[in-house]
Amino acid sequence: MGFFDKLKKGLAKTRESLTGKIEKLVLGYADIDDDLLDELEETLIMADVGVKTTEKLMQAVRQGIKQKKINSPDDLKPFLEQTIRDMLVSGTDEVRLAAQGPTVMLVIGVNGVGKTTTIGKLSAYYRGQGKKVMLAAADTFRAAAIDQLEIWGQRTGAEVIRHEEGSDPAAVAYDAVLAAKARGVDILFVDTAGRLQTKSNLMEELKKINRVIQREIPEAPHETLLVLDATTGQNAISQADLFSQAAPISGVVLTKLDGTAKGGVVIGIKAELSMPVKWIGVGEAVDDLRPFVAADFAKALFEK
C-alpha cells in the first residue's frame, strides 16, 4: 500500500467526521439558516479543528454568504474545502538539511507524545535513504529512556551516544555533535526529555542544549522539531507558544494521527500556530511516519 493510500486510510475517520458530516448536514437543509451554521460549527469543533480556527472558518463562511459566493447549502462544502486547502498549503513544509557536514535535528515536546519513537522511525527513514544516522540520548531523566533509544539504534543501524541516567543532557548533546562531525554522520537526532512547557527550569535546560549545539555548528540545529500528539486539544497552542520561546521551532511532527477522528488538528496547527508541519504519523508501523505534503493531505481529507 502506498503512503497516499495509507494516509487516506488513516484519515478515513476524520473524513467521515468532517467532510462526511458536512455533506450530510447540507442535505438536510434547503436554505442556509442559523441552525445550519450552528451545526457546521459543531462539526468543525468536534473534528478538533480548534476553537479559534473554527471561528475563523465560520467568519469566512459568513463573509462568503454576504458576498454571494455561497448561495445555497450545496455551495458550503466546496467553499470550506477551498478555504481549508488554502490554510493547509500556506508556507513551506520541507525538511532543511545541512549543505555540508551533519544535519542536527533537535526533537522536543511534552511528556508522552512519542519523541523517542519518532526518532526511531525517522532514523529508519533516513537509513533507508542510505544516510549515516546518529542518535543522542539526551533524555537522561525518564527511567529507561536511554535503553529505549538504544533499542531503536540497534534496530535501525544507528550509533547511539549515551551517558549515565541523570547526567547533563547538554553534555550528551555536545559529545554527540562532536562525534557526528568526527565520524562523518549525515543526520544527528537529539532526543530530549519530555517536559511540560510551563516548567521554566526545564525550558532553561532546553535553551542550554540548543546553545551548546549552536556553539559547535553555528547553523544547527537545522531542524527543531516539536512533537505534538494528535490527541491533544487546545493545549497544543500553549505548547507551540512556550516551546518556541526556548528553542525556535522549525516544524511540527504530528504523531498518533492514525485511525481516529482527530485529523482536523492539522488544520488548527497550520492556521493558529502558522508553523510548518514536517512529518505526520498515520500508523504504528515504522514506515507510517512520513513527510507531510499539504496537497496530499488535503486531497486525502476531501476525496472519497
Binding site: I45, V110, D229, T231, T232, G233, A261, K262, V265
Partner: peptide, 12 residues
Amino acid sequence: VDAMTGQDAVNV
C-alpha cells in the same frame, strides 16, 4: 488519561 486530550477523549 492525559489532561491535555482534546475532543477525542470522549471516544477513548
